[in-house]
Design a protein around this nucleic acid. Structure first.
Length: 591
RNA sequence: GGGGCUGUAGCUCAGUUUGGUUAGAGUACCUGCCUGUCACGCAGGGAGUCGCGAGUUCGAGUCUCGUCAGCCCCGCCA
């Protein structure tokens, strides 16, 4: 029986004199000859145990044999440390446990990665030996705080009349959106389930069923290429509400995030969050997920350069493109080398280069300065509110390429000039997204959010005959929530009118038959008394990554996959036996 | 699908520029000594498929080509 067990990290000065039983892993074992110090670790932390020469020879010998990561059970008496032996770096450093019994429950091989060192080991090894990696303090901390964040979310939402309702994991594949992970069906040979990209359709159905307020902390699956903030399976806090407008959902989400931030960091955040329209975000920051912890806003400069001698600009403008710029007071800190590097890295966004010049406080020099007329310089000074020694970067080309390139430069400048306060949590709503995007290549409209997103009431009339060039004029009742430049959630008010749903499908080129085949149950359901409803999904992994200031969501997930989607611990995915394939009537054609 | 960085002892890395002695360091590990350590100390020891495969060469950790893996980025992610 272990019922009387105490936890290492919870021993305090108040417990001095108490006899305690402990169980855990040996973090370090120092034998000084006549005295042994063994640091014992469990899920709460570590405490120092002492065995000195007054102990039985049996106890001394057991203590001497314990090695790193051995599992032991021990008992002893809590003792106050002599003031000169206190370890201020250890939470339990004011006390120690004088052991009277140590039992080695299990030995350990020499651990392939160090447990007591912070973040030093290559990530592939950490993933292979995840069970050891998870013993490390920062990983343990992340996993425990993630649990607390989930508990806070469940508590907050339950208190606000939400019901947590599970939705199917095995469901129908829909070719729209991300690639599906497919699951073959043994009972229906040649047919497949798909793992959900999100419970979207089912949560809407729940609204129509009258469940009013739904939430679920749920895994979602997308078979796309990965990034440091993207995993093939990830966790959403998924919400859907009836009889609400966008503002109601925003208030709920603000309260929820406030609660989660309080639980994880102990900090208070201010609500309501700032709101930026999509247009404004793109114009001022070049991205729909701006980091608003610092300024350095972009400005359009097409008017200034419309008659320029610098042909890269005039050519881009003549071609229907844009010229935009960004300026920062750098007092000469941005070096030639950095400028070249920025320009090189900007090319991946599809622009030819990153023309620049310096502003000295009165004149322009370097780079494209020789093409600037005095009048141009005046205009630039006003437009960017230039003062002191500043640096200006420009980009010319398609609006999308220019925006993403300059948004990227903006972040680099912010970091290089130390303008980003890492302590701040800048939450932001981005609203008024366009409902559609038009693809010139495919010559068709695509949903920017998803096909069930409601247009704003004043845009309904445009649906009947929308021209490609007007695509962005139809505004959706959609909203993203952004934290420090990372999208942590997005949602919308849904279409609850079958006629509107039909016109959106027809604009998206989804025929009646196709819609019938893919989402018939939702379309049917909309005809049986669908309440006005809407919702949002929050990315739990990303939220935890940002709140805990980790570089990757892998650091807040117990068992993440590599960027190729492999689990280095279990070696998934892996081949299956011919018998399994045969039973499913599947054949692997080749690699 | 494309680009970049990385791969050397259990771990972290140096050595690769300019091919040439027996491939090193710190740490971990093992042994001995040590009664207040907590990055213990001291002495000694073991430890390598230089990611893998070809090629060039008298000779390859080092040069070339291919390939695999991890990470980062573009595309992609309704």
């Amino acid at each position: 029986m272990y019922t009387s067990r105490s936890y290492c990290g919870e021993l305090t000065l108040e417990m001095v004199g108490n006899r305690v039983e402990l169980a855990g892993w040996v973090e370090s074992n120092r034998n000084l000859g006549g005295i042994i110090f063994m640091k014992l670790r469990d899920v709460t932390g570590t405490v120092q145990m002492v065995v000195d020469s007054s102990a039985s020879s049996e106890l001394l010998s057991t203590a001497d044999q314990a090695r790193s990561e051995f599992v032991v059970r021990a008992s002893g008496t809590v003792r106050k440390r002599d003031p000169r032996n206190v370890n201020p770096d250890l939470p339990t450093g004011a006390i120690e446990v004088v052991a009277d019994s140590i039992i080695i429950l299990n030995a350990s091989l020499v651990p392939p990665i160090p447990v007591d060192v912070k973040d030093q080991t290559g990530e592939d090894l950490r993933l292979k030996y995840r069970y050891i990696d998870l013993r490390r303090e920062d990983m343990r901390d992340a996993i425990i705080k993630r649990h607390r964040a989930m508990m806070a979310a469940r508590r907050f939402l339950s208190e606000n009349r939400f019901f947590e309702i599970e939705t199917p994991v095995l469901n129908k594949s829909t070719p729209e959106g991300a690639r599906d992970f497919l699951v073959p069906s043994r009972n229906s040979i040649g047919e497949f389930y798909a793992l959900p990209q999100s419970p979207q359709l089912f949560k809407q159905i729940l609204m129509i069923s009258g469940f009013d307020r739904y939430f679920q902390i749920v895994k979602c699956f997308r078979d796309e290429d990965l990034r440091n903030d993207r995993q093939p399976e990830f966790t959403q806090i998924d919400l859907e509400l009836s009889f609400i407008e966008a503002g109601d959902i925003m208030r709920v989400v603000e309260g929820l995030l406030q609660e989660m931030v309080r639980e994880v960091t102990g900090r208070e955040i201010k609500t309501p969050f700032r709101i930026l329209s999509y247009r404004e975000a793109m114009d001022r920051y070049g991205t729909d997920a701006p980091d608003t912890r610092f300024g350095l806003e972009l400005s359009d400069c097409g008017d200034i350069f419309s008659n320029s001698d610098f042909t890269m600009f005039t050519a881009a403008l003549a071609d229907g493109g844009v010229v935009r710029g960004i300026a920062a007071r750098d007092d000469g800190k941005i070096s030639r080398k950095m400028i070249d590097q920025y320009a090189e890295e900007a090319k991946v966004f599809g622009i030819k280069g990153l023309p620049m010049c310096r502003y000295t406080g009165s004149a322009a020099e370097g780079g494209i300065a020789k093409y600037l007329k005095p009048d141009d310089i005046d205009k630039l000074r006003t437009r960017f509110n230039l003062s002191g020694q500043s640096i200006l970067f420009f980009a010319a080309g398609s609006p999308a390429a220019v925006s993403s390139a300059l948004a990227n430069v903006r972040i680099k400048l912010g970091r290089a000039l130390n303008l980003i306060d890492e302590d701040r949590l800048e939450f932001l709503w981005v609203t008024d997204f366009p409902l559609f995007e038009y693809s010139r290549d495919d010559r068709r409209f695509y949903s920017k959010h998803h096909p069930f997103t409601a247009p704003r009431a004043d845009c309904l009339s445009m649906l009947a005959s929308l021209k490609p060039e007007e695509a962005e004029r139809v505004i959706a009742q959609a909203y993203d929530v952004v934290l420090n430049g990372v999208e942590i959630g997005g949602g919308s008010i849904r279409i609850n009118n079958p006629d509107v749903q039909s016109s959106v499908f027809s604009l998206l080129g989804i025929s009646r038959e196709e819609a019938e085949m893919k989402f018939s149950f939702l379309i049917d359901a909309l005809g049986f008394g669908a309440p006005p409803h809407g919702g949002i999904a929050l990315g739990l992994d990303r939220i935890m990554m940002l709140l805990l200031r980790r570089k990757s969501i892998r650091d807040v997930i117990a068992f993440p996959k590599t960027t190729r989607g492999q689990c280095l611990m279990s070696n998934a995915p892996s081949p299956v036996s011919p018998e399994q394939l045969e039973e499913l009537n599947l054949k692997v054609i080749g690699k």
